[in-house]
């Protein structure tokens, strides 16, 4: 057996190498390029839904971006780099009993309650937690509603007007039962900007 094994192993290795090279051509190039071809039929989607405003591209509708300042609807806390950095996507990975996470939650609750003029107990859960990707494009309808009064005051708009804008941007569950209701923050802020720059 042992005298036969080595040449046999070499022959097997040669077969393996040839098959691997062939697979690289078919599975590694032809397959993704074919899918790329299909993607060209829906270029907007396949390219990540890049949105334009005021004659320039401002980013992707499905990748969250940072908004600071009381005149904007603000997104969730983010653990991606310094916040919403697509070159460092990811989560905080803090465990359920981690004191640092508990401290962050308390801090975020106080900050959001002060900024939005809400009772601390009413702050939305997604305002207190970082997402999995750090690039969550959405907030819950509750979190968006929580910010209405602040944004309206900062922009000199009527509260009802801004509340209506939020209501118009609430996207229900997909097909009525998949996932969760949500509000895309970039789209909401784009509409807000169009209303009162």
């Amino acid at each position: 057996m042992s005298s036969l094994a080595f040449p046999q192993l070499l022959r097997q290795a040669r077969t393996a190498l040839l098959l691997l090279l062939l697979a690289t051509l078919v599975l590694g190039l032809a397959y993704p390029l074919a899918v790329l071809g299909v993607g060209r039929l829906v270029p907007g989607r396949a390219d990540g839904q890049i949105v334009s405003a005021g004659g320039r591209e401002v980013g992707s509708a499905i990748v969250g971006q940072a908004f600071e300042g009381e005149q904007w609807f603000t997104p969730r806390p983010s653990a991606a780099g310094d916040g919403y950095d697509p070159l460092a996507s990811g989560a905080s990975n803090l465990g359920p009993e981690n004191p640092d996470l508990l401290a962050s939650v308390a801090e975020r609750r106080a900050a959001a309650a002060a900024a939005d003029g809400t009772a601390p107990a009413d702050v939305a859960s997604d305002a207190l937690t970082a997402s999995g990707s750090g690039l969550d494009p959405d907030v819950s309808p509750q979190y968006a509603q929580q910010q209405v009064a602040r944004v309206a005051a900062a922009r000199g708009l009527g509260e009802q007007q801004v509340a209506d804008l939020v209501a118009a941007h609430v996207r229900g569950r997909s097909l009525g039962f998949l996932g969760e209701p949500r509000v895309n923050v970039l789209e909401l802020n784009l509409a807000l900007q169009a209303l009162r720059p």
Partner: peptide, 8 residues
């Protein structure tokens, strides 16, 4: 909701 996405 820590580590979870709103849409999911």
């Amino acid at each position: 909701m820590e580590g979870k996405e709103v849409r999911f």
